[in-house]
Design a protein around this nucleic acid. Structure first.
Lengths: 249, 249
DNA sequence: TATTATTTTGCAAAAAAATGCAAAAAAAAG
DNA sequence: CTTTTTTTTGCATTTTTTTGCAAAATAATA
């Protein structure tokens, strides 16, 4: 039996039962436990299921997260998330702001990652709650209802006393000459401050946002240390982005 | 049976019965008492239920949204909430901490109330989000997963720069001689600080909490300006609570 | 207060996961 | 059709997680 067929059967069974048991499945399909386990790892990497001790469950199992409609570029988002995960390391402290990209990333982290996340996003704090070994620090301030983040002077002040290993910056537009841009002024100021509080700044861009320009500028491309995209570093789309000091992933 | 399957069955049974018994459940699922107990702890950490002695009940944050689930003291809670609403006025700034009581109060406010609420509770911020004219300020700090509040030094520091009209204090025990008490040390210290930041301090007590004493003391009864109960001010139960400076509602 | 039930804690056995390795199978190259 | 290279697979070993148990601490109840 070829791998693809096995994986198809796994997904089918998962859809029927909402859960699978590795041992049971290996006996049923008459292959070694390890093969099934490796299949499940692959399927998890593709974002098709969630691996748990002893088996796997559907992605939405026991979770209040509404099934994500990644939309057309689901595959791109999955690729992106896999790449950006390399930036997460045990014992690091990472600053993450709001936005859907960061939210998706936070949903897909390794279950036992041991680190500290500082954020001004309430949905992010809620997601991070699921990870037993992640310590979450929330930046306090005026609560922005629409974006579900805290903003304002108080957030700025707290940032002055913070120094993190990495800032994963959310944004709206990224252009080789203009730099990183945002649709909202207050956020753009906040993000500048956040960048100052970090040793390194990374941004994670879906292709759609490349070459896009919005109203308010956060910083130049040169101020970004790491740019994560789903493209190969040699891709034509990235012409102009290959600059001194910007690491392409 | 994998852990996730068990946990799902627990949640399902909980949704059906509104409460579960650990012993009963361990026999039903044929696993040790400890496993079930550990499952319940995990589920509580995820905010999916509330652990009680010998079992668990549906999470009040969620279940109270469903009026059917108010349980025995539904009527009392409704009376209380109606009374406490008199403390909320347009153009006031109120400090509210976590706890189910404050959560219920926040759920029932007049639609167009125009005021500012400062809080360290994430569920509270989420609820207040529904009111178009309430400005919410979130106190930032270390996120306590179980209670879904921020705690620690950072919260304390922010409180130093804050002065509010009223602090609606959540608590565990209230006794005429001992004063206001709490089950957790860190929270008790925080509440002291919060009380200092307010012109007036109010507490809202269901009868169950009257005469109750917990481990950590927050303040004396004299430090409370307003005590809201569902009882008449002349009620025998309130003997000892009628003290100089404490206004009974 | 005594008594019972429940929770907490530490511990050891069992189950499962991760890792490294080598044989087998498949694919690619010549 | 071989040979080489890559991928897949199963197995043994180590590490981690889960589980059940028992003693001690704590909470509820009579």
């Amino acid at each position: 039996m070829i791998k693809e067929e096995r994986q198809r059967l796994i997904i089918e069974k998962l859809n029927r039962d909402q859960k699978i048991n590795l041992l049971e499945l290996s006996q049923l399909l008459n292959v070694s436990y390890d093969s099934i386990r490796r299949d499940v790892i692959e399927l998890e990497d593709k974002g098709l299921l969630k691996k748990v001790h002893g088996g796997a469950v559907a992605n939405t199992y026991l979770s209040f997260k509404n099934p994500q409609n990644y939309g057309a570029d689901q595959q791109e988002v999955v690729t992106l998330i896999r790449k950006v995960q390399k930036l997460f390391d045990n014992h690091k402290t990472i600053l993450m702001d709001g936005g859907t990209t960061n939210f998706h990333i936070a949903e897909q982290l390794p279950r036992n990652l041991e680190m500290t996340v500082i954020t001004n996003s309430l949905p992010l704090a809620a997601v991070l709650n699921e990870y037993p070994k992640i310590e979450t620090i929330l930046l306090g301030g005026t609560y922005h209802k629409r974006y579900q983040i805290t903003i304002g002077n108080q957030v700025m002040k707290q940032l002055e006393h913070i120094r993190v290993d990495l800032y994963l910056m959310g944004f709206n537009g990224l252009h080789p000459e203009v730099g990183v841009t945002l649709r909202h002024y207050e956020e753009s100021v906040l993000k500048q401050k956040m960048a100052q509080a970090a040793k390194k700044v990374a941004i994670c861009a879906i292709t759609e946002k490349l070459h896009n320009v919005e109203t308010y500028k956060v910083c130049d491309l040169q101020d970004i240390d790491i740019l994560v995209t789903s493209l190969k570093p040699s891709d034509i789309e990235l012409n102009g982005f290959r600059q001194l000091g910007v690491e392409l992933l």
